[in-house]
Structures are given as C-alpha cells and as structure tokens.
Computed example of a mutant assay.
Amino acid sequence: MKYQDSLEQASEKAAQVKVFLQRAGLAAHPVNYAVCYDYISGHHAALCTAIEHKLSAKTPFDDFIMADLYSRYLTPANPQQEQLLQDASGIVSRLTGYTDLAAEQVADYLQQLDFSLLQLQQQQQNGENILSAVEQLRQQTQEFRSGQYQLQQQLEQANQQSHQLRHELEQLKLQRQLDPLTGLYNRSAMQHQLELWFTEQPGRRVAAIAIDLDHFSRFNQDYGSAIGDVILSKVARKISSYVQSSGLPVRAGGEEFLILLPDVDLRSASEIAEQVRRGVEKLRFVSARSKKALPKVTISLGVSLYQHSENWYQFLARTTDVLTLAKQRGRNQVASETMLALPA
C-alpha cells in the first residue's frame, strides 16, 4: 500500500473505508477510495482537516466533493511546475541582484562626481591646471557608462527569459485546467469559474447539464479501455461543439460530463441538452483493428438551474439526482429538475 501497511493494517483500514463510503452513500471507485484511505490513515493533515470540517458542518459527501479533495490534496506534484517555479525564483533573484548593482553603481558614480566637481572648483580657485581632474572625471564617466551598458544587456536577457517563463506558466495554467484525455475543463476549472460567475453577479442564473454515457462500463469490458478512451474523447468533442464561448464544458470524471451555461433558463438548457443527446446518438464508431462497427453510444442527461439558497456543491449534487432520474426512466433521454416531483 501507499504507506507500506501490513496486510492486517490494510485490511483493517479497508473495512473502515467501506463503512465511511457506505455511510456517505458513495461508490467505491478509485478516487473515493483513495481519499477515504488517506483520511483513515491520517498521514495527510490538510486532507483530514478538510474532511473533519465537512463532517462537523454536516456537509453531504458526493463524487464532486471527493474529486475536489483528491485534486486538492492527493494529486502528485507536477515536475514541470516545480521546474517553472525554480526558474521564476532564479529570474527574480537575478533581477533583484541587477537592481541592487545598478543602485550601487549610481551611488558610487554620484559620489565620485561630487568629489571631482569639488576638486575642479578648488583647483579653479587656486589657479591650478584642471585638465587632470577633467580627465579623471571623463574616465569615471566612461567606466560608469560601460557598467550601465553591461547591466542593460543583462536586464534585457532577464526580460526575455521572464517573457518566455510567463508564456510557459500560462501554458501550464491552461494544462492544469484541462482534462488530458478529452481536452474539456476539469473540476478545478469548473469550481473556479462558478465562483467567478457568482462573485461577479451574485444573482446570476446558471444552468447545468449533467451527462453520462449509458452502460459505458460494460462497453469498456467488452472492447477494452483503449477503445473506450477514444469513444470518450470523440463524445467529449461532440458535446463541446454545442457549447458557446460563454459556457463551460467539463469532464466531471470517468464517463460523466457537465455543461455549465450562464444566463440560460431551464427551458433553453433542456433544448440544448436534447440537441446534445441527438448529436451523440448520431455518432458512429468503427474499430480500427477489426474494421467492424461498434455499438451505438447514447447518453442520459439531467438539467437543473442554480438556486441561490444552495452552495455550488448542492447545486451539482442536485443536477446529478436529475441525471439519475433520466437513467431510471430508461436512459438515452433528457430529464429536467421539474420532473423530480413527478411520478416515474
């Protein structure tokens, strides 16, 4: 195990994890299990504190919260990010050094200039030859100019490096917001965007469309995860094609997707969801190896509208409940939150 637990310790912790998941009503998939196992192990103080806080606040746990905890506390450090941070630290240190050197050179030159001007004044009053003092002042000025030129070259080089670093940081920031398989936004980007929308306009209307591929686990079992990943990627591309620039297409995890639509009412969101459903249903897939047609892929969708009396965790959990209703009604269909109170 991760903490080199003995078989007995691992079995005991696994039993505790199972109890935690059952009490929270969570599925025992890898993300949920990893979060619970780390919490039970008690080796990650920040994760334990976050979970204890939610438990004391009686916050209901769901897949969204667990994935957020996993992303925040258990995602391995990115070596590329660490290298960029070291590069940034190095550039800042060099710029600080160059600035200190420039200030020191200017201070020395001004001191020498004051001294030389004083000498000129005294020699002129005494009727002495001032050529030597002028020559000394010229040499000091030349040395100062040469030092400033070298410093300018160093600053220009550091400036170029900082621009390159800024570009790389922007690319890394974008990578951290995207799901590597599908190219859609991830949960972290979703949370940030929701918080931004609600901060900009607290009463803003936001609709959510939760999407799940029907019987996809069975598809993976029959055809393998490699083909499954190709299907996910193409379905994600089709889903994204229905989202305008103001919306946010998200891979929520596994075969689950979300579309967040600001300033859209429930009826319009349901119409968009139906367009997405039909678009995915029309997709056709052929095995590159056997050249045989693969089974048709369909999706179930749940549509809900944000209520300002809830937090965004509750909002997304409610959207998932609507999606579950679509599955219970036979899959390959769109369910709206208005159906929750209706008989199945």
Rank of each mutant, 00 (worst) to 15 (best):
Q122W: 13
Y73T: 04
L155V: 05
T99V: 03
G90D: 14
A46D: 05
L155K: 01
I211R: 12
N32V: 08
V19Y: 09
Y39I: 05
E255P: 06
S41G: 12
R205K: 12
Q119D: 04
A335Y: 09
T59R: 06
K282E: 15
F285N: 01
T319P: 02
G147M: 11
V250E: 13
V230P: 10
Q201E: 15
T298S: 04
A133F: 03
P180S: 13
L101W: 05
A326C: 02
R138S: 12
M339C: 12
V134K: 13
V250S: 07
A269H: 05
K282W: 11
S116Q: 06
H53W: 03
Q221S: 08
A45P: 11
M66S: 07
S270A: 12
L47Y: 08
Q164V: 12
Q122L: 07
R94T: 02
G97M: 08
P295W: 04
Q16F: 04
A252P: 04
E255N: 07
Q121M: 03
R318Y: 04
S71P: 03
R204E: 04
R284W: 02
R94S: 13
M1G: 09
S56I: 11
K54E: 15
S240Y: 07
Q111Y: 02
D212G: 08
Q201D: 15
D68T: 12
A102D: 07
R267I: 13
L194V: 03
K296A: 15
Q105M: 05
Q333H: 04
S188Q: 14
S300N: 10
Q275G: 02
L261M: 01
C36F: 11
Q160I: 13
L213W: 06
T319F: 04
L69A: 02
L294V: 06
H53N: 06
A57E: 15
L120W: 12
S304H: 01
A189F: 03
V230H: 00
Q124M: 01
A107Y: 07
L169V: 10
E200P: 07
F144H: 14
A45I: 02
M339R: 02
G228S: 09
K13P: 06
Y242K: 00
S11M: 05
A102G: 15
Q191H: 14
G42S: 08
Q175S: 13
K291S: 10
G247S: 00
L55E: 11
S336W: 10
R251Y: 02
L169K: 10
G25I: 01
N159M: 12
Q123G: 09
L213Q: 11
Q136I: 02
G42N: 08
K13E: 07
D100K: 00
Q140F: 13
S246L: 03
V235E: 07
L101E: 15
S225M: 00
E135L: 09
G127R: 09
L258M: 00
